[in-house]
Amino acid sequence: MTSITADSETHLEEDHGHPSDAEYWKVGLFLAVLTGLEVSTYWWPKSAHRFAAVVLIIMMVIKFGAVAAYFMHLKFDSAALRRVFMLGLISAVALYMAVLTSMTYWTDSGNAEFVDPPHAKPLPPTPTEPPPSIPAAGGH
């Protein structure tokens, strides 16, 4: 029984620091502002596309983390739940980064060039001199 009491006290400690309603509104507003910034990158000039991609990925990670931490209560809940979710998330990211790498995504499909139809491979150079004659083997 003592262990049950101890467990409960541990959980009560983890429950401390729950956001108030106002804080949830603030998180929601923060997410809305980030989404607005994300959408604004659509009108950025083409020269800034590479920079926009980096900014978008950073904002995506921040939004993902904010929703998981505050709205899904991962920040305030048991560490075991955090580990369970992170296991799936990290496994997925690692697995599919490996898949994309093995499928040459970063050097082929990921480029900004339109690759349909794919670039034709250059033909081998036309030989200018006839190949050296091979002396006929002796014999009958």
Partner: peptide
């Protein structure tokens, strides 16, 4: 939570497939 963790793998696969095919020949 276990289900949601496994769903990460499902959507990871679908997102990767889209990324692989969005610019491929065809």
């Amino acid at each position: 939570w276990l289900f949601l963790g496994s769903e990460c793998l499902l959507f990871g696969g679908l997102i990767s497939t889209y990324l692989l095919y969005k610019n491929r020949p065809g």
